[in-house]
Design a protein around this nucleic acid. Structure first.
Length: 308
DNA sequence: AATGAACGCAACCGCGACTTA
DNA sequence: TTAAGTCGCGGTTGCGTTCAT
């Protein structure tokens, strides 16, 4: 009992890492990678257990780690995600590129302490400027799980707990494409392409001829108090606006049409379609970096004001 | 200036999940 | 099938720093 099996060897060092140890670990990992963490300390010449090496690398030494204060957008995302999935820090961290679960967990615990000590102040800081109107759809993890497992009745306008989205939403699974391929099926590539494509489609000269592109609709969701819900295991969500009849700028973006649009780009296979409004709720927010989201919101906000 | 409390963060621990022989 | 090894996650601890009195 006591120590973990990988740490049973004698003379393993504990506690803070020295710069020399860091250097050894960095040099080893960047040269050979880490196939098996339990082998890393010996091969790297470290008196540590593999677990400690892994932790040090993942939480501190990794080159893609993002340090410094959390931005208001990151904070907002953490708060919303935590409201939905609870203390699943790794899940939350997966939505914040460069942030570790440990960092988010520490941040949250510090924040929670503030909240406990100063309820009023903390409640205010929970809604950073510019996003005060955006609310998560589910207020408890139980609600979320129930919907995920289709145990709840369909959402209806009469149910204040599950307000219908302002526009029909569709979701699809891009997780199948996570392994990546030449056709560009990773989430990151998907997000990038949607952003690019949407920008191309939606501009002052041709907007009368195009259906509302997904990300504009996504922005519209945010503008109208609707944050697409999150579901574990589903890769992404593209909310699609089906507007009122007549107006070309609100021309329905048909399910079939969107399906073909996504299929043509081979984002995932097979696609799992579900018309959210009126049938079920689900999907996962697209894993965009805050900067990307900022750019999109900025880019689309003027278009949005034109159609409203 | 001294000192104790509070905070922030890195690291550890235990456990469950997964892998492999 | 199962047991050992390993990984990854969430909870927790410990310690250096900052803040308040």
């Amino acid at each position: 009992m006591g120590h973990h099996s990988c740490c049973n060897q004698q003379k393993v060092k504990r506690g803070l890492w020295s710069p020399e140890e860091d250097e050894k670990l960095i040099r080893y990992i960047t040269t050979y990678g880490y196939g098996c963490w339990s082998e890393v300390p010996e091969k790297a010449g470290l008196q540590r257990c593999g677990k400690s090496c892994r932790l040090r690398w993942i939480n501190y030494l990794r080159p893609d780690i993002r340090r410094g204060r959390f931005t208001p957008e990151e904070e907002k995302l953490i708060i919303n995600l935590h409201e939905i999935v609870g203390n699943r820090w790794a899940h939350i961290a997966s939505h914040l590129p460069g942030r570790t679960d440990n960092e988010i967990k520490n941040y949250w615990n510090s924040w929670i302490k503030k909240k406990i000590h100063k309820p009023g102040k903390a409640a205010q800081s929970a809604t950073p400027s510019g996003f005060d109107h955006v609310q998560p759809v589910f207020s408890t993890a139980d609600q979320f799980d129930a919907i995920l497992h289709h145990n709840l009745p369909k959402p209806s306008a009469a149910d204040p707990m599950f307000p219908p989205p302002p526009c029909p939403l569709f979701m699809f699974d891009v997780s199948a494409g996570d392994s990546g391929s030449a056709s560009g099926s990773s989430k990151e590539e998907f997000v990038q392409e949607v952003a690019t494509l949407t920008s191309d489609l939606w501009n002052p000269t041709n907007q009368q001829d195009q259906a509302m592109p997904p990300f504009l609709a996504f922005t519209a969701c945010m503008e109208s108090n609707y944050l697409p819900p999150l579901v574990d295991g589903m890769g992404g969500m593209v909310p699609c606006c089906v507007g009122e009849d007549g107006e070309a700028s609100r021309q329905p973006f048909e399910k079939q049409e969107l399906s073909e649009w996504v299929d043509s780009r081979q984002y995932s296979s097979p696609l799992i379609w579900d018309q959210v409004a009126g049938t079920s709720l689900g999907g996962e927010a697209l894993p965009t970096a805050p900067s990307t989201m900022d750019a999109m919101i900025t880019s689309f906000s003027s278009s949005l004001s034109r159609i409203n």
